[in-house]
Simulated scan of single mutants.
Amino acid sequence: MAEAVTIGDSEFDRDTAVALREPGVYDAELSAGWTIIRAVNGGYLLALLGRALGEALPHPDPLAVSAHYLTASQPGPAVIRTQTVRSGRTMSTGQASLFQRDEDGGEVERIRVLATYGDLDRLPDDVRTSAKPPAIPPREHCFGPSDGPAPIPGSSAITDRLDIKLDPATLGWALGAPSGKGEMRAWFGLADGRDPDPLSLLLAVDALPPTAFELGLEGWTPTVELTVHIRCRPAPGPLRVSITTRNLAGGFLEEDADVWDSADRLVAQSRQLAMAPRG
Rank of each mutant, 00 (worst) to 15 (best):
R128L: 12
L120R: 03
S146K: 02
G106V: 06
R101E: 13
G106C: 12
G88V: 05
R89H: 11
L162G: 10
G148V: 00
V113Y: 01
Q83W: 12
P153Q: 02
G76P: 11
P75V: 08
R161W: 15
A67N: 05
P60G: 11
K132S: 12
T116H: 01
R101Y: 04
Y69C: 10
V85R: 11
S87T: 13
P60I: 09
P62K: 05
H59E: 09
S97R: 11
Y69G: 05
V113K: 00
T90Q: 13
P133C: 04
G106L: 09
P124C: 11
A72S: 13
A157W: 05
P75A: 09
D125C: 03
A78S: 14
L98R: 04
D104R: 14
V85S: 12
P133A: 04
G154W: 04
Q83D: 14
R101D: 08
D163L: 15
S130A: 10
A96D: 06
A72I: 07
A72M: 09
H59K: 10
V65H: 11
D104F: 07
D160P: 07
T82M: 12
T129I: 06
G106N: 13
V113C: 03
D125I: 04
D126E: 15
G148Q: 00
A78Q: 05
S130K: 00
G118V: 04
M91L: 13
P134Y: 02
P149G: 01
S97Q: 12
E107R: 14
L114A: 04
I164Q: 13
D160Q: 15
G154A: 02
D61Y: 09
L123V: 08
G105K: 13
V108G: 03
A157H: 14
D125H: 09
V65W: 05
V79G: 06
T82I: 08
T159R: 14
E107L: 13
L98I: 15
E140G: 01
D126H: 08
I80T: 07
G144R: 00
R101C: 08
D126S: 09
G76I: 09
P77A: 14
I158K: 11
T71F: 11
D163Y: 14
L120K: 02
I111P: 00
R161N: 15
